[in-house]
Amino acid sequence: MVNPRPAGHTFKNLQESKMEFEQVFERITEFMKSDPCGNYRLMVGTDSQVHRSHTIFITGIVIQNVGNGVWACIKKVIVPRKMTQLHERISLELSLTEEVVSLFTEDKKNELINIVLPNVYQGATFTIEGHIDIGAGIRNKTSEFVKEMVMRMESMGVEPKIKPDAFVASSYANRYTK
Score class of each variant (00 low, 15 high):
residue 7 A to P: 03
residue 8 G to R: 07
residue 9 H to W: 10
residue 9 H to P: 11
residue 9 H to V: 07
residue 11 F to L: 06
residue 12 K to S: 13
residue 12 K to H: 11
residue 12 K to V: 05
residue 14 L to R: 15
residue 14 L to M: 12
residue 15 Q to V: 02
residue 15 Q to D: 15
residue 16 E to Q: 11
residue 16 E to A: 10
residue 16 E to N: 14
residue 17 S to K: 14
residue 18 K to Q: 10
residue 20 E to C: 09
residue 20 E to Y: 04
residue 21 F to S: 02
residue 22 E to Q: 13
residue 22 E to G: 09
residue 23 Q to I: 04
residue 23 Q to D: 06
residue 23 Q to S: 06
residue 24 V to A: 10
residue 25 F to R: 04
residue 26 E to T: 15
residue 26 E to N: 11
residue 26 E to L: 14
residue 27 R to S: 13
residue 27 R to I: 01
residue 28 I to N: 03
residue 30 E to P: 02
residue 30 E to R: 14
residue 30 E to C: 06
residue 31 F to Q: 05
residue 33 K to T: 11
residue 34 S to L: 07
residue 34 S to W: 02
residue 34 S to A: 15
residue 35 D to V: 00
residue 35 D to L: 06
residue 35 D to Q: 07
residue 36 P to K: 14
residue 36 P to N: 06
residue 36 P to E: 09
residue 36 P to D: 04
residue 36 P to L: 12
residue 37 C to I: 09
residue 38 G to Y: 01
residue 38 G to W: 05
residue 38 G to F: 03
residue 38 G to S: 00
residue 39 N to W: 02
residue 39 N to K: 12
residue 40 Y to L: 01
residue 40 Y to V: 00
residue 41 R to D: 02
residue 42 L to V: 06
residue 42 L to R: 00
residue 43 M to W: 00
residue 44 V to W: 00
